[in-house]
């Protein structure tokens, strides 16, 4: 069902809202996923692929990657602050749950207290995934507010990307939490590209050298 999210921006209760510049999401899991379908095995494909650097192709592919990562489905869990974002307008998550040290929430407000292993049926109900969480406090992997240049640099930097090497990055496109972006639950829009298109762009960007677009966006 493709419905527009009916969540309206809260008036008072999101006063601490950071201004969502453009929105999006992408769940970088701390642990590499075990998910690998035969047909779709990025590791295999990447293995066959030789790294053939091409800055123009790479940057072009990143434009598509960036659109996805900055969409609410990706960015909402990569906020600039310590509170996740929510909805297609990327408002601060109601009730302001906090990241916590390991990204799974704090006290009585842990992600998994509401977010189940699968989506809860119904409009405005918590979407689910067994690994639902934010990036941890020591590796926040912020997307919100990042320019294409900044985001690309960050993704390529092992000290900012969860210590991932190229192969791990490639694999990450099929992480279950990343895939959750394409199964967002009722009332939430999908990322602007299909997962297949996204993965293709992602791998292209990386295998062509992982170039960052110019610092000043045109």
């Amino acid at each position: 069902m493709k419905t527009k999210a009916a969540i309206k921006p809260s008036r008072y209760f999101h006063t601490k809202a950071l201004f969502a510049l453009s929105a999006m999401l992408f769940m970088i899991a701390a642990i590499a996923s075990s998910f690998r379908s035969k047909e779709d095995d990025p590791f295999k494909k990447a293995g066959k692929q030789t790294i053939n650097k091409d800055s123009i192709e790479s940057v072009k592919a990143f434009a598509s990657v960036y659109k996805v990562l900055m969409s609410p489905r990706c960015m909402n869990c990569h906020p600039a602050g310590d509170v996740p974002l929510q909805g297609d307008d990327s408002h601060l998550h109601t009730m302001l749950p906090k990241r916590g040290t390991d990204g799974t929430g704090v006290y009585a407000m842990k992600c998994a207290n509401c977010h189940q292993e699968t989506n809860t049926p119904g409009l405005h109900t918590p979407p689910g995934n067994p690994k639902w969480h934010l990036p941890p406090a020591d590796m926040k992997m912020v997307f919100q507010g990042k320019t294409p240049h900044e985001l690309a640099k960050q993704l390529m930097d092992p000290n900012q990307n969860g210590h991932k090497n190229l192969q791990q990055l490639i694999e990450h496109a099929s992480d279950t939490l990343v895939l959750a972006g394409w199964n967002p639950g009722e009332g939430r829009t999908l990322p602007p590209l299909s997962h297949k298109e996204f993965k293709k762009a992602w791998i292209t960007w990386l295998t062509k050298g992982g170039y960052a677009p110019a610092p000043k966006p045109q």
């Binding site: 009730m95 006290y107 998994a112 509401c114 189940q116 292993e117 809860t120 119904g122 918590p126």
Partner: peptide
Amino acid sequence: VAQCGACVVHMDSEAVRSCVTRVSR
């Protein structure tokens, strides 16, 4: 829909919202 917290119980010591937690879990 896990918005109000009236249904909070402890499940393995965490404060889960029982209204969205399936009994099978």
